[in-house]
Design a protein around this nucleic acid. Structure first.
Length: 591
RNA sequence: GCGCCUGUAGCUCAGUCGGAUAGAGCAACGGCCUUCUAAGCCGUGGGCCAGGGGUUCGAAUCCCUUCAGGCGCGCCA
């Protein structure tokens, strides 16, 4: 029996079930078989004990040449591993760069609103989650044939900037701020809040300055632009290290002149009602508090801006999906916004999704810029890279371009750590965990990749070995830049060798099974908007490879064994590199 | 008060559509480098799946309920 699908079809045929009805499971112990079919549900239908059904089924299946065995109420199957190995490797080698890719997106846009930093606020570890989740989703959707549109919805609007100007004019030192913008701006911002406790007039002053920004006052405007420039300059360094590029930096202020139509439409459709002077959309019918659209003084609010932004994005990109990678504190806000869109007849409201995630806390205290209780991302990155460098100096002193390797491994550890549990879970930031390079970590996966590369290099099997490759020898590029189905760029290596039963051992089989599962894992990650599925996959395949590597000598003296194992190594390496790329990690060739 | 989310090993977390004996990593302890990278591999110990009821042949998983924690609930974003 070659594949899971073939087993299912046969079962359905014998039992007279409709296609797709038979579900297979994986037995708890490999010795039992590769797939299992539980017969308990059939007991009622056939009025027979499950173990009897299993026994009869196993007999019938065996008659038709399958390796089926009854065990209690289960029928266990063993695959024809030789044929399976051939199928999986050929599928991979044929697809090459596009293995796991699909065209289901048909080039349609998926808007991903993520990272969305605040101007003049430091990039702290709390922002890291939205940044890496959003980035990974962009790559996953691109893999499935969508066109991701990465939007950094800047927090560039609000009285906070009035406060900052007041703080700057009172306590700011231009040179100090130029030297170390985010830290210094944070300091004066914190000081503003301390002083404002004592002197309420500061708040009024701040509101006045904010009004001046909006009115286009020259001094206010230029100060604001200065804050914005410094923030973007600093944050782009972080994005460079993470290999992130945004398509748009259209922030909140971008929608200032785009809210009138939607407000008008709400009013026209009779959805807007006055309540204590404010204009709201009542959502009691949907078990939600009212959605505030306009303040009593007529000013717009957060929701107003998001409604305008949603409509703008639909009109501009005609998205298939529009995602908001924002912490779960805003669950209600997005529910309200989506509902209001539905109420004004935007049927595409169903295509919007709040990709919410848990809070990041610091030693049991919430992160708060205002209180100055932050861990800056640049500091964490710096420490991680230093640690990676120290390990490289110790273990691979001869490595070329150690700086790049250290940066990729150090940053990779942080990204991987952030993507290594379900989005919804809260995270308590821990230096120990973030800087751990052992066990289920990014460096572990990267190390495994480098190990595989090392074997392939030794066999002179490295894909695409050429001058360009040598220049970037520190770090392997994504799979799509380096299709490794071109095994033997030297042109003298056999690709279509007969695998025979050289890959029928448990360790090779586990790897083949994972390679086969990769395309499904990508789809599931997209369906759930959960990059963690890919993180888990990367760990699984890395573990399986290390086990394989330990149990079997890849560079065996026997040529047919060696070739088969090298093909498996090449495929594993390619899939692992691609999995890492999908969650935003580089896969170094050496480390 | 109301709503949403979370609760699995000392710690951090997996656990698919309800399936066989609940799995990893960290930390602790003990093994494995003259063979392809030891950032690795193997082993040992560690569990009332928060508690209680129910549905089911079968529940960590579904339903009800209690408890604990987090978040949100009109003029911030």
């Amino acid at each position: 029996m070659k594949s899971e699908q073939a087993i299912k079809s046969k079962l359905e045929e014998i039992l007279g079930l409709k296609p797709g009805a038979a579900e297979l499971e994986t037995p708890p112990d490999k010795a039992m078989g590769d797939y299992a079919f539980p017969c308990f549900k059939l007991a009622k239908q056939f009025r027979k004990a499950p173990n009897l059904i299993a026994a009869e089924l196993a007999e019938k299946l065996s008659e038709s040449g399958l390796s089926a065995q009854a065990a209690g109420g289960y029928v266990n199957f063993r695959l024809d591993r030789t044929a399976f190995a051939k199928d999986v490797l050929e599928a991979y080698e044929q697809a090459g760069a596009s293995y796991g890719a699909s065209s289901e997106g048909q080039g349609r846009a998926v808007c991903v609103d993520y990272s969305s930093i605040n101007i003049a606020k430091p990039f702290h570890i709390g922002h890291f989650r939205t940044t890496v989740i959003g980035h990974s989703l962009c790559r996953i959707y691109a893999k499935l044939g969508y066109k991701p549109v990465g939007i950094n919805h800047l927090g560039d609007y609000g009285t906070q900037f009035g406060k900052l100007i007041v703080a700057y004019k009172r306590y700011g030192d231009r040179d100090a701020i130029e030297q170390n913008p985010m830290i210094e701006l944070m300091k004066i911002y914190v000081r503003f809040h301390e002083e404002a406790e004592k002197d309420k007039s500061l708040e009024d002053e701040a509101r006045e300055w904010f009004r001046k920004i909006e009115d286009g006052d020259e001094e206010a405007q230029s100060l604001f632009e200065w804050f914005k420039d410094m923030t973007l300059r600093e944050v782009k360094r972080v994005y460079d290290d993470l290999d992130i590029e945004f398509d748009y930096y259209t922030g909140e202020s971008f929608y200032n002149d785009k809210m009138a139509p939607v407000i008008g439409e709400l009013r026209e459709k009779g959805l807007l009602e006055l309540n204590d002077g404010a204009s709201v959309v009542d959502l009691a019918e949907y078990n939600m508090p009212p959605c505030l659209i306009l303040k009593a003084d007529g000013a717009s609010l957060y929701a107003t801006r998001d409604l305008a932004a949603a409509i703008y994005r639909k009109e501009t990109f005609d998205f298939a999906k529009s995602l908001y990678v924002v912490a779960y504190q805003q669950d209600l806000h997005f529910k309200q916004v989506f509902k209001v869109l539905e109420l004004i007849g935007r049927e595409w409201a169903k295509d919007m999704e709040h990709v919410s995630f848990g809070m990041v806390s610091l030693e049991d205290a919430a992160l708060s810029t205002r209180k100055g209780n932050v861990v800056l991302l640049v500091d964490v990155m710096k420490k991680a890279v230093e640690k990676a460098m120290a390990i490289i100096e110790e273990k691979s002193p001869g490595l070329a371009d150690k700086e790049t390797a250290a940066r990729r491994v150090g940053v990779g550890a942080l990204v991987f750590d952030t993507l290594s549990s379900n989005r919804i879970k809260d995270i308590s930031f821990s230096w120990d965990r973030a800087l751990n390079f052992d066990g289920e970590t990014g460096p572990y996966c990267q190390y495994t990749h480098a190990r595989a590369c090392s074997v392939l290099a030794k066999a002179e099997w490295f894909p695409n070995r050429n001058a360009a490759f040598d220049k970037r020898a520190d770090c392997h590029p994504p799979l799509h830049e380096s299709p490794n189905n071109t095994v033997g760029a030297d042109g003298n290596l056999p690709v279509k060798t007969d695998i025979g039963d050289n890959l029928s051992d448990d360790e090779a089989f586990e790897l083949l099974r994972l390679i086969e599962e990769f395309p499904g894992a990508i789809k599931e990650a997209a369906r759930k908007n959960e990059p963690f599925i890919i993180t888990r996959f990367a760990l699984d395949i890395a573990k399986a490879f290390n086990k394989f590597y330990y149990e079997h000598r890849i560079m065996d003296d026997d040529e047919s064994i060696r070739t088969a194992r090298l093909r498996l190594t090449a495929a594993t390496r390619g899939v692992l590199a691609e999995a890492l790329r999908l969650i935003g990690l580089y896969a170094p060739e050496k480390m």
